[in-house]
Design a protein around this nucleic acid. Structure first.
Length: 509
RNA sequence: GGGUGAUUAGCUCAGUCGGUAGAGCAGCUGACUCUUAAUCAGCCGGUCGCAGGUUCGAAUCCUGCAUCACCCA
């Protein structure tokens, strides 16, 4: 990867690290010149500016007295001598500002000092140029923030993928489609919240720091509380707390928040990721399936041009109804193995290079499922009725205790959602916890006996659903890497990183 | 964890057989009152990711390390 711009700027003509580079010094000189003109280069409250998009759409051809006021960053600059055109970008788009020596008068020297990256406000008559571009002919220009670092190339923007993630603040304004994507992500979340509230759900917040990391099978991050002298886990799932709320009498709850899993990074995995979890009393996994399909299709309708959405070099067809197939059917179709034929499944696992000697039969089955089925599920597919052994928090099917009332939704080969008919029998739950704990390290796995206590008071039968929001945004926007839909994805530090430091910073006395 | 590739100017990228570093953009100087990635002329700008090695000579070949990307587990 490349060194950060700031560090790179300090190379070359500077011997010591941290000193400003050539370009930064030039910009510092302009900043000083602005100060000498009695102007604060960092501005202040600036009122009355309209968005660039509103200015454009509000332009009236026949109104010669129309004025406009904008604020934003200079992203293009064309200096024609006594006339300067600049393209100002705000988060709605761009608007052209024309600065002329005649209109600027004694402020003209300021206009000449402005450069790419500076943030300014401008006001003046709104008109069109000879070539038809809507333009604010500025008679007032306000310096709002001097940019001291060199902007990326004006045409290609910032394209180094590593730099884009590390300096998202530059990526956002130099690559407008990135801004659009994150605005869309926010809109998607708003739509989900509105939809759920419309169904009578309430949004809640449950602990991110938990003394027992439950609700999923994943390695947790461990942190430490100094005054209590105890380790805590960052949550891997909110499930067990949300279900306590069902016990408490909250009938429809949801939470949209971060989960943390101490596992590998990939195009589909960031260690912290945003999860929607919801629970509905008196429902089951069929209700959850309908809800998942409804809300996703609503989002596709709202945020995609068509039910067919491009994703990498494939396309996803969200047209309803979505396929619903049982786990066993799909396993048979794609691995060629019968789910009850463990010998052939172990043989298949061996062919696939899965280290399965130490694994329970059910784990082997699931490994084969993951290796053979998942990548084939491109269009939305509900995989229903999982082997009960994989589902310690799920009610089993009434007619067959070997299977649980659980589905996972797969799209583009990714697990997008996971839902159960929630197990509400405390005795069965306690037994499942015991089975789950067997053979695990003591520190990692503790029985959540309070959750069992809660169930003993009585939890209504319920459907529960989790949707991976980052992955949902990926399929809705065609982003093939989770890092493209997370503003600040986790990256390794590039410099001055000492692994020893981390221990000492934990704060253990 | 393994494999492959990438890392060159502020940014976007070239760099042939190993012969001593290039372009565009931006920056600086100058010209220009209707430009649209403005244009024109001139100029500046590099520890070629880092550390070693081979060689008369390394951006180029070799080893190690770092970060990123992709593939595999």
């Amino acid at each position: 990867m490349r060194v950060l711009a700031r560090e790179q700027a300090s190379k070359g003509d500077d011997s010591s690290k941290g000193e400003p580079g050539r370009f930064e010094r030039q910009r510092q000189e302009k900043l000083s010149a602005i100060r000498q003109m009695g102007i604060d280069p960092y501005g202040g409250r600036y009122e009355g500016a309209e968005s660039a998009a509103d200015i454009r759409s509000g332009y009236k051809e026949d109104d010669e007295s129309q004025r406009a006021k904008c604020a934003g960053r200079i992203t293009l600059l064309r200096d024609i001598g006594k006339l300067i055109f600049m393209t100002i970008r705000d988060w709605s788009g761009t608007i052209q500002v024309g600065l002329s020596k005649k209109l600027m008068g004694e402020r003209w020297p300021l206009a000449k000092l402005l450069e790419l990256g500076d943030i300014i406000g401008a006001a003046g008559k709104l008109g069109k140029t000879k070539t038809g571009e809507i333009t604010i002919w500025a008679d007032e220009v306000t310096m709002l923030s001097k940019s001291l670092l060199h902007p990326p190339e004006k045409f290609h923007g910032l394209s180094d993928i590593d730099l884009r993630y590390r300096q998202r603040y530059v990526d956002l304004w130099s690559n407008p489609e990135v801004m659009e994507l994150f605005k869309k992500r926010s809109a998607i979340l708003s739509t989900i919240r509105e939809y759920l509230k419309g169904l009578g759900f309430i949004e809640v917040e449950t602990p991110m720091m938990q003394s027992i990391a439950g609700g999923a099978a994943a390695k947790p991050f461990i942190t430490h509380h100094n005054s209590l002298g105890m380790d805590l886990f960052l949550r891997i799932a909110p499930e067990l707390f949300l279900k306590r709320l069902l016990v408490g009498g909250m009938e429809k709850v949801f939470e949209i928040n971060r989960n943390f899993r101490n596992e590998g990074l990939s195009r589909q995995h960031n260690p912290e990721f945003t999860m929607l979890e919801l629970y509905q009393a008196y429902a089951d996994y069929n209700v959850m399936m309908d809800l998942t399909e409804e809300v996703t299709c609503l989002l596709v309708e709202k945020y995609c041009e068509d039910t067919k959405v491009r994703f990498g070099d494939t396309s996803i067809d969200f047209a309803r109804p979505w396929r619903r197939s049982s786990y066993a059917e799909l396993l048979a179709k794609y691995s060629g193995c019968d789910i009850d034929d463990i010998d052939s499944l172990r043989k298949k696992a061996a062919e696939l290079g899965i280290e399965q000697a130490q694994m329970d039969d059910t784990v082997v089955v699931h490994e084969v499922f993951e290796a053979t089925v998942e990548k084939n599920l491109s269009n939305p597919t509900f995989v229903i009725d999982y082997p009960a052994a994989l589902c310690p928090l799920t009610k089993t099917k009434r007619d067959n205790e070997a299977y649980a009332e659980r589905f996972e939704l797969y799209v583009a080969g990714m697990e997008l959602a996971n839902a159960y008919t929630e197990l509400n029998d405390p005795a069965v739950q306690e037994e499942n916890f015991r089975l789950q704990l067997r053979g695990q390290a003591e520190s990692m796995a503790t029985m959540d006996s309070d959750f069992v206590t809660a169930l003993k008071y009585g939890m209504p039968p319920a459907g529960g659903l989790g949707i991976g929001i980052d992955r949902l945004v990926m399929v809705l926007t065609g982003a093939t890497s989770i890092r493209d839909v997370v503003l600040f994805p986790l990256l390794k530090p590039t410099t001055d990183w000492d692994p020893k430091r981390d221990k000492s910073r934990l704060g253990t006395p």
